Amino acid sequence: MRRAVCPGSFDPITNGHLDIISRASALYDVVHVAVMINQSKQGLFAIEERIELIREVTAEFGNVEVESFHGLLVDFCKERDIPAIVKGLRAVSDFDYELQMAQMNNGLTGVETLFVPTNPTYSFLSSSLVKEVAKWGGDVSHLVPAPVLRALGERLTQD
């Protein structure tokens, strides 16, 4: 069985993330979406909310499993017998950082990293940018799945 992981903080998941997960799900039998827990950073959405949103928007793929992790991604991979990490690259600047991570991960445990170029439609997109635009009332409906748009609206009107 071919398995891969798509890691990230997904706060929130965007159409760019979804594009990479969708493409990975077409290539692998099982794609694990690993939602990173960063204790030192307060996200807009709690880990459980992120996981639920990701499960909702990836349900149609049928081969995506979503769970959280903390610590080293290679340990997550080792515990689940996952030999490959799939990462989207938006720009050359992403590659510089991600190449170092890929080489470290491979050196630690032999896990391979596959880089997938982002769809040009989403080459500028990040969760941080979506949150910033949405916070100021900008239209992000074309940047996130409908359930995420609803959750953003609900969360940002609470503040």
Rank of each mutant, 00 (worst) to 15 (best):
S126T: 11
L156T: 08
D96L: 14
V33E: 01
G107F: 10
V130M: 12
I82A: 11
N106L: 04
L156E: 04
S93N: 13
V35C: 01
K78I: 14
G43V: 05
A59P: 00
Y28V: 06
D19F: 00
L27T: 01
D94K: 01
D139N: 15
G88W: 09
Q158W: 10
P147C: 03
M104G: 02
E98M: 12
S22I: 09
R150M: 10
S128V: 01
S127V: 04
G62E: 13
S25P: 02
C77A: 09
S128N: 05
V133F: 06
S9G: 03
K135M: 05
K131I: 01
F115K: 15
P7G: 06
V86E: 05
F95G: 14
R2M: 09
A34C: 08
F115R: 15
V66T: 06
G71H: 07
Q158Y: 09
S40R: 06
L114T: 10
V57A: 02
D19T: 02
D139K: 11
F61V: 12
A4I: 04
E52Q: 13
N15R: 08
V144A: 02
F95C: 13
F61A: 03
D139S: 10
V57P: 07
L108Y: 08
N38E: 10
A34H: 04
T121V: 15
V92Y: 00
G62W: 01
I13S: 00
L125G: 07
V33T: 01
T14F: 03
Y97F: 14
G153M: 02
G138H: 11
H17P: 03
G16P: 04
C77R: 06
A4P: 08
V133Y: 01
S128Q: 10
G110M: 07
T109I: 05
G71F: 06
E65Q: 13
A151S: 04
V33F: 04
D75A: 13
R50F: 11
R155D: 00
I82Q: 04
F95W: 06
V148Y: 03
W136Y: 14
T58I: 09
A59V: 00
T58A: 03
L73N: 02
L73G: 05
M36Q: 10
L152A: 02
P117N: 13
E60N: 13
T58Q: 06
T113E: 03
S123T: 14
T113R: 09
H32C: 08
A24F: 13
R80F: 03
V144N: 09
L149F: 13
H17R: 04
S9C: 11
V57I: 10
D19Y: 02
D94V: 04
S25F: 11
F61C: 05
S93G: 04
L73W: 11
K131T: 05
V5D: 09
M104A: 15
V33N: 03
S68T: 13
F124M: 14
L73Y: 12
I82N: 11
A84F: 01
D139A: 10
A102K: 06
F45P: 02
R50K: 14
H17S: 00
G137M: 06
I37F: 07
